[in-house]
Amino acid sequence: MIRFLDVCCADLEGVTFEVVTGECTRVALASAETRSALVRALLGLERPRAGRVLLLEHEVTACPPAQARTLLARTGVVWAGGGLVSNLQVGNNLLLPFAYHHGRPGPEVEARARALCDVLGLETSDAALGRLPAELSPTERCLAGVVRAWLTDPEVMIYEGVLDGLATDRARGVAEVVCARHCRGPTTLWLTADDRAPQPAMAALALRQEGHRLVEGAP
């Protein structure tokens, strides 16, 4: 469950919407800054100027750090650009959150990571997984971020402009794979600030500030 209650952050004033458990929602925003601000508010990285943001029924900014980390461990986030750790090889990046929360991953987890890579069309050779994030293309970085988030089986998935700026056939294929997975998957919030980028087919909402008025509706 994700809930924004009368939230003011970035150039948005009084945003109210929710993604109920098991539902997938795509939210179109006017700019990458606004998109980033919503994600940061949701994850407790920034406090909104006003209003409340609830993730899994809790306000992350109001939680003690340990509780916030527990909440975030149940959440998968795919950042624009993938959000990989730059000094870790791709393979280690994929397994990092799992290893941190559940202990050293066994061969079955590594096999699952490779299978998810295959689904998304990411190379799984040892050489490919041994590369550093800087050696990947932007699309590959995003896909690695998706695999990393999926591997922990999160209850909530947040995609922050994952395919924005990537209007390629491959990106369109990724949008379809994401959509297919989330038909039966976790609560999903897909944020985008690029109308031309491929989007997964899911319930859509546009949040745009026009003067002092917040416009909501289908994008």
Partner: peptide
């Protein structure tokens, strides 16, 4: 921030 968001 990425680490924090992953609960690390």
């Amino acid at each position: 921030d990425t680490l924090w968001a992953a609960g690390i």
